[in-house]
Design a protein around this nucleic acid. Structure first.
Ligand SMILES: [Mn+2]
Ligand SMILES: [Mn+2]
Ligand SMILES: [Mn+2]
Ligand SMILES: [Mn+2]
Lengths: 217, 217
DNA sequence: AAATATATTTAGACTTATCTAAAACTAAAT
DNA sequence: ATTTAGTTTTAGATAAGTCTAAATATATTT
């Protein structure tokens, strides 16, 4: 079994690798995990000994197969718990992340499978992110970020690049939700802000917002 | 906020005090928490500084009001999660304790109240133990242990003194469940074993079993 | 190619929670 | 009232995970 700290490092590195085999450097991990580079070095040495990642001094790290398996298990737990919190306990999507950060570390061979079955095998979490199945298989949806759409083009809001509660609250306020059909009305060349239209209303979003919206065409 | 270790000590001491103001000694805590007396001494010093208990060297400890409040919160969480696991995830009552030991430490101001509401405010956990409300109030049911019943007397199995999975599995095997109506048929003077009758069958239980069964008359 | 800036690692320290072994205290027995 | 037994505390060590500050390696400029 792995400690919470170990699981968090593995999960963070997996997320940073983002499905690819990119080498991840110490500072980036430190930033994401909100700790110091020296702590990261200590931990990746440990994880390297446990063969969850490969590590060459000064050269960054890469998860092994084993490491990816662990990461996917933790992510599976995180997302299933988020789904539970929203669907069963009536939390809103911007309130569940921190609780799921804790619940994802509960150790049990059966718990998460029973939870999944109770929730009727959801495929996506409240933020549109796919939930890995018990074998670690994951549904990859092809999306582009909203910045790539041309004027007149339409697409569906599928998921988010940034799921921080600040951003989620912004989306609440602007009445943008997953599965919304979005049409690009106009693009402002000066600051790349985008005028969009949904079924119910129109609004202007900044470049920064647009690049956090993953669109399925 | 308190660490998991701190919460476990407080909860254990509360359970040992058993509603009274008994002074609890170091060795007993060590035994219950499966650690060494020296570790207990270290921890109770810490908890004493935090004013969760009063402690005089060599004289044992007693929870303060504050300490009891904390204990009741942890117990509330433990029992609500156990109820969730049995009622929603279809665990059996002998499988839930270890998972609840972990879940009881999840930190959130809202989670447990939402869970309670979702579960429709259960008053007892799967082992018949009362669930404290958000203010720490607890329903005390007056019971006696089965040893105290005389031949011919009847009562209802209300809760258990020992809820270890070994004992719970014994009860499963013997088809004894909470709320069962039990009648004492005969008491064997030699070893205090008791011949009992339920709605469905008769059986003989040992003294050790009998004293773990809390009966409501 | 050297100098400078940036990134990473090492060294040493700290905190929490634990342990063993020894010392100090209390309770029980003679 | 001593001795003995049992309990509790202290002293010192260890492991996990973190930190700061210094040392070292790599990358970027000049
Ligand atoms: Mn999340
Ligand atoms: Mn999510
Ligand atoms: Mn329990
Ligand atoms: Mn219980």
């Amino acid at each position: 079994m792995f400690s919470q700290a170990e699981e968090n490092y593995i999960k963070t590195i997996y997320t940073l690798q983002n499905g690819t085999k990119t080498v991840i450097n110490t500072n980036l991990i430190a930033y994401k995990i909100n700790t110091k580079a020296s702590s990261v070095t200590d931990m990746i040495k440990k994880l390297s000994v446990k063969e969850l990642l490969t590590y060459k001094k000064y050269q960054g790290v890469q998860l092994t197969e084993r490491g990816e398996k662990i990461a996917l298990k933790v992510i599976r737990k995180h997302r299933l718990w988020e789904y539970f919190l929203v669907k069963k306990l009536n939390y809103s999507w911007d309130e569940v992340h921190d609780i799921a950060e804790q619940l994802e570390h509960i150790k049990s061979d059966t718990l998460i499978d029973k939870l999944e079955s109770y929730l009727q095998f959801p495929k996506f979490d409240p933020h549109g992110d796919p939930i890995p199945d018990r074998d670690g298989k994951i549904i990859l949806t092809k999306t582009v970020n909203l910045l790539n759409l041309k004027v007149g083009q339409k697409g569906t809001l599928d998921s988010l690049k940034d799921s921080s509660d600040v951003f989620l609250k912004y989306l609440n306020k602007k009445q943008l939700a997953l599965r919304d059909r979005i049409k690009v009305i106009d693009i402002e060349p000066f600051d790349n802000s985008i005028h969009i239209e949904t079924k119910t209303h129109q609004l202007v979003i900044s470049k920064k917002v647009a690049e956090n919206l993953n669109i399925k065409i």
